Simulated scan of single mutants.
Amino acid sequence: MEDFADFISKIDHPIHRARTEEVLNWVHRQFPILQTKVAWNQPMFTDHDTFIIGFSVAKPHLAVAPEKAGIQRFSADIVQAGYDHTKELVRIPWGSEVDFDLLERMIAFNIEDKAGCTTFWRK
């Protein structure tokens, strides 16, 4: 997780910093096969050099980016969890609990769906 240390240290709000660190550590523990990197100023997890999931911090929320296919696949579950989403990301308000089950399913879906992918992003 040292790849993310600099990113985390730059989050000014202590609650946002702690939540972000909690989520990133959780992903790392649950999916130790994934590689970590920061690109486009976002901590992300990859598998065989293909993007699996990324995160970013905004004033009102933690943004989770599982790519468009992940949003489409889990749209109803995202709404049921009480989160807002766009075509490319899920917004988890800082005051909301993280639905780790949903996060786990999104990551597992991307790992399986992109097993044969040879590009960073889906085409």
Score class of each variant (00 low, 15 high):
residue 1 M to A: 09
residue 1 M to S: 10
residue 3 D to W: 05
residue 4 F to R: 12
residue 5 A to M: 07
residue 5 A to V: 06
residue 7 F to W: 13
residue 8 I to Y: 04
residue 11 I to T: 06
residue 11 I to M: 05
residue 12 D to G: 12
residue 13 H to L: 12
residue 14 P to S: 15
residue 15 I to R: 14
residue 15 I to S: 15
residue 15 I to D: 14
residue 16 H to A: 14
residue 18 A to S: 14
residue 19 R to Q: 15
residue 19 R to H: 09
residue 20 T to G: 09
residue 21 E to P: 03
residue 21 E to T: 10
residue 21 E to Y: 06
residue 22 E to I: 06
residue 24 L to N: 03
residue 24 L to W: 04
residue 25 N to D: 15
residue 26 W to Y: 12
residue 27 V to T: 02
residue 27 V to P: 00
residue 27 V to L: 02
residue 29 R to I: 10
residue 30 Q to E: 15
residue 34 L to P: 01
residue 35 Q to E: 15
residue 36 T to F: 07
residue 39 A to C: 03
residue 39 A to E: 08
residue 41 N to S: 05
residue 44 M to W: 09
residue 45 F to W: 13
residue 46 T to Q: 08
residue 47 D to T: 01
residue 47 D to N: 08
residue 48 H to L: 05
residue 50 T to C: 01
residue 50 T to W: 00
residue 51 F to K: 10
residue 52 I to A: 03
residue 53 I to L: 09
residue 53 I to P: 04
residue 53 I to M: 06
residue 55 F to C: 02
residue 56 S to K: 01
residue 56 S to G: 06
residue 58 A to R: 08
residue 59 K to N: 07
residue 60 P to Y: 12
residue 64 V to S: 08
residue 65 A to K: 09
residue 65 A to Q: 08
residue 66 P to N: 14
residue 67 E to H: 04
residue 67 E to V: 02
residue 68 K to N: 05
residue 69 A to P: 03
residue 69 A to F: 02
residue 70 G to N: 01
residue 76 A to V: 05
residue 76 A to W: 03
residue 77 D to N: 03
residue 77 D to M: 02
residue 79 V to M: 10
residue 80 Q to R: 13
residue 82 G to C: 11
residue 84 D to I: 09
residue 86 T to M: 08
residue 92 I to Y: 02
residue 92 I to W: 00
residue 93 P to I: 11
residue 94 W to Y: 10
residue 96 S to D: 13
residue 97 E to A: 11
residue 98 V to Q: 13
residue 99 D to S: 11
residue 101 D to S: 05
residue 102 L to G: 00
residue 103 L to P: 00
residue 104 E to I: 01
residue 104 E to M: 05
residue 105 R to P: 00
residue 106 M to W: 03
residue 106 M to F: 04
residue 108 A to Q: 00
residue 109 F to T: 00
residue 110 N to T: 07
residue 110 N to C: 06
residue 110 N to G: 09
residue 111 I to P: 00
residue 114 K to N: 14
residue 114 K to V: 04
residue 115 A to K: 11
residue 116 G to F: 02
residue 117 C to L: 15
residue 118 T to F: 04
residue 119 T to H: 11
residue 120 F to R: 07
residue 121 W to P: 07
residue 121 W to F: 15
residue 122 R to T: 10
